[in-house]
Design a protein around this nucleic acid. Structure first.
Lengths: 239, 239
DNA sequence: TGGGATTTGTTCGTATGTATT
DNA sequence: GAATACATACGAACAAATCCC
């Protein structure tokens, strides 16, 4: 289990897609990074045809921006987009919690407990990259237990986009490290309480959003405001 | 306003994508219909590259099946898939109802009333094709009022897939002609009752599903003849 | 403002795999 | 079961648009 979040359908342009997606959600490729088809193809040893297909899939996922006749770039979500994505994510994940609670069994309990243990281990070891990745995988794994492939696809997509969003608006890492909240969700599920599980999930996602985009509006500020901050410096420089 | 449901992002491989999508949701291209890149490219006067991009997008939307080294075909949803799609659709559209109820204003009321009147007119005129198309557009239009672009995209996708599903399991047409149910939703929204609107929507989608699942399938017609009928629409969409 | 280097959009040829007689 | 026809996967090449100096 070393593959990327969306590795389920690795068929079409698979390797390039998977690697790029993982690199983007890992924040190894920050928003705005140019993704020229030539260079990427050279890196992977394939031609532009393959890269194009991968980039188009990533664009459909909202992780890459492709304007016509322009070099593709890693998407830079706006604050509005961020809100929209989290809104949909909360809706989807509430449904996941309800469905999984209905289908609950001992196997689910064991798998989730093991996953949370892994999260804890990564956190204790100070491996922030793994911590973030595992936090995302928790949600995808849970969605998988709903037995609904379309729900898995959508949850995978919104979770990926949320990782990207946190890399724009959130503090560097450790924003998603709410292992305790994952435990709370597990407990509600184990108790067979669908409503409480859905509420716990909703609360958790809301907290992720608050931690990520709640406080400051770090990115996409007003140009005028920025220049105003720099004017005093200019005055000094002139002197 | 003659464009296809998913015409919002007509940028990449736009014309071919739009026409094929419309033809599929209109059930003019039944499930299982072969979609060879050559023939389609010839019809549209473009090369396989363009057709490929369009087919890939349609495959991502779940409307087309593409296995490696095999001719693409119009997707033939299984009963399980159908259930999964409707499950997600209910979840998404409940959220749409809630959000639209919150943002309700007189403009929304007028636009929805006009749309329902159009539906009624098509139904009275016996235009079953227009009736089905307008029924789908009602949901997409409503989603647009949520102000959440991602929600619009997802609703558009599930609604399209539901049209395809109905063409497999439902009676030929008129399965979705529940204009009265659309009116009930509008009334709940106009009353400012978000919970009732969500419930009405949930009930409506459940009824669409119930009416849809239970029939048989049809035969395979000629692609060229069908696409020729759709080319004029493409010209209009481009203008 | 202009021109050159980059990079995309597209087509078409070849290799490879599938379906069919 | 083998051979043939057919259709896709992939890559190379050309023209046009964009970006940068």
């Amino acid at each position: 289990m070393q593959r990327g979040i969306g590795a389920s359908s690795a068929g079409r342009g698979g390797r390039v897609y998977t690697v790029l997606q993982q690199a983007i959600v890992d924040q190894a490729l920050p928003p705005g990074t140019r993704l020229p088809e030539d260079s990427i193809g050279a890196q992977f040893g394939v031609s532009r045809t393959i890269v194009r297909a991968a980039l188009q899939r990533l664009a459909a996922d909202g992780l890459v921006e492709m304007k016509v006749k322009r070099t593709a770039t890693v998407a830079r979500p706006s604050l509005e987009e961020a809100r929209a994505v989290f809104e949909v994510r909360r809706c989807l994940e509430r449904e996941v919690a309800r469905l999984v609670a209905e289908k609950w069994n001992d196997g689910f309990a064991a798998r989730l407990a093991a996953h949370i243990a892994e999260e804890q281990q990564a956190a204790d070891g100070g491996d922030s990259k793994a911590t973030v990745r595992l936090a995302a995988e928790f949600h995808v794994k849970l969605a998988g237990m709903s037995g609904n492939p379309l729900l898995v696809r959508y949850v995978t997509e919104v979770v990926s986009r949320c990782s990207l969003i946190l890399s724009v608006f959130g503090r560097p890492h450790q924003s998603e490290c709410a292992i305790g909240e994952h435990r709370t969700i597990l407990e509600a599920l184990a108790a067979g309480d669908a409503a409480r599980a859905a509420a716990a999930m909703d609360h958790h996602v809301a907290l992720v959003e608050r931690r990520g985009v709640g406080g400051e509006t770090a990115a996409e500020p007003d140009i005028g405001e920025i220049l105003a901050r720099y004017l005093p410096l200019a005055a000094v420089a002139d002197a």
